[in-house]
């Protein structure tokens, strides 16, 4: 039964990919891609990675909004396909070779694979955490996570730098063009539910699948929905409070990391007995910052609209 499910899922993934790549118009391609994202989330559950499944599903939705927004604009950018048949054949051959190589490697890879699962579990007690993925993200490889939020911030700064001259501190355009009544209804009904779920995800993240990325993405999605419905105006990007919110998450993370120099004596080490408290503070601050950054990235650069 499960083997059948795996087989069907594994087959559907490349099929959806093919559909998405070869769809006639951009919009269908994007919708195919979003469907692929949902299938991937299922695949992640089957692979025993519920944390990843949640992230995939949540981020997939935001990616969909982004791509759909660009799909309408992209038509005018389309360039005719170039290259000789020979070149195209070579490219196809190269891609096929890589795929075949990966398939051979997967088939020949050691099973059971070498694993850090035992090592990751061994220190959970000291960190007072129940979810090993959270332990990896916020203790063992916390530097990756810290720098990854910096990546998101850099992406946001990059997006902002694409504004027109003199407009960049103003509000971005509201997403989605025109709002209809059902969207307004949805934007009134869903956000309370979404926020509760987000807080729940964040809260259980220490011990069960969930955590800051998933929660932040959900909050960002709710905010975008409210903006789409026109219930609120997009914020001005130069606003001090908004900027403070964005910087707070990484700043708190860095501050706690640097405090580690003083107390246990190591960067990003948590003092004994305070590990869980420190991790929760970091997670809450990062959730707020990431939610704001993710939503602002989707909203795009300022257009100079000023709120009256």
């Amino acid at each position: 039964m499960n083997a059948t499910l795996d087989a069907v899922l594994a087959l559907m993934l490349p099929v959806m990919a093919l559909f998405s790549l070869n769809a006639r118009d951009e919009r269908s391609a994007v919708i195919g891609f979003m469907a692929l994202g949902l299938l991937l989330a299922l695949a992640w559950v089957r692979l025993g990675a519920v944390d990843v499944a949640l992230t995939e599903a949540a981020i997939g939705a935001l990616t969909g909004v982004l791509l759909l927004g660009a799909a309408s604009a992209a038509v005018s950018v389309a360039v005719p396909r170039t290259g000789s048949p020979l070149l195209r054949g070579l490219l196809a051959l190269a891609a096929a070779l890589v795929a075949a190589g990966v398939a051979v490697i997967v088939a020949g890879a050691p099973d059971p694979a070498p694993s850090l699962a035992a090592a990751a579990v061994a220190h959970l007690g000291a960190l007072e955490l129940g979810n090993p993925v959270t332990a990896v993200l916020l203790a063992y490889r916390a530097l990756d996570t810290l720098l990854e939020t910096v990546v998101v911030l850099l992406a946001l700064i990059g997006v902002w730098s694409l504004a027109g001259e003199g407009e960049w501190r103003g509000a971005p355009a509201a997403p989605g063009g025109t709002a209809s009544r059902p969207v307004v209804l949805l934007a009134r009904l869903l956000p309370p539910v979404g926020l509760v779920v987000a807080v729940h995800l964040l809260w259980v993240g220490a011990d069960a699948p969930g955590g800051k990325f998933q929660a932040a993405t959900l909050i960002a999605a709710m905010w975008l929905l409210v903006l789409m419905a026109g219930l609120r105006a997009p914020p001005e990007l130069g606003g001090a409070r908004l900027r403070g919110l964005i910087a707070a998450g990484p700043a708190v993370f860095i501050a706690i990391g640097l405090a580690g120099f003083l107390v246990p004596g190591q960067f990003l080490a948590y003092p004994e007995g305070w590990a869980k408290a420190a991790i929760i503070v970091i997670e809450v601050a990062l959730t707020a910052s990431l939610a704001a950054m993710l939503a602002l990235i989707v909203l795009g650069p300022g257009t100079g609209e000023r709120r009256t």
């Binding site: 692979l47 025993g48 990675a49 944390d51 990843v52 992230t55 890879a109 050691p110 099973d111 059971p112 694979a113 070498p114 694993s115 850090l116 699962a117 035992a118 990751a120 579990v121 090993p132 993925v133 332990a135 990896v136 993200l137 063992y140 490889r141 990756d144 996570t145 990854e148 990325f213």
Partner: peptide
Amino acid sequence: ARRGAAAGLPGDPVPQALVIT
């Protein structure tokens, strides 16, 4: 990660965390 399942976990958490990043 799945093939590295051990210590009572359904998968090796390290690559799972890498994927989230």
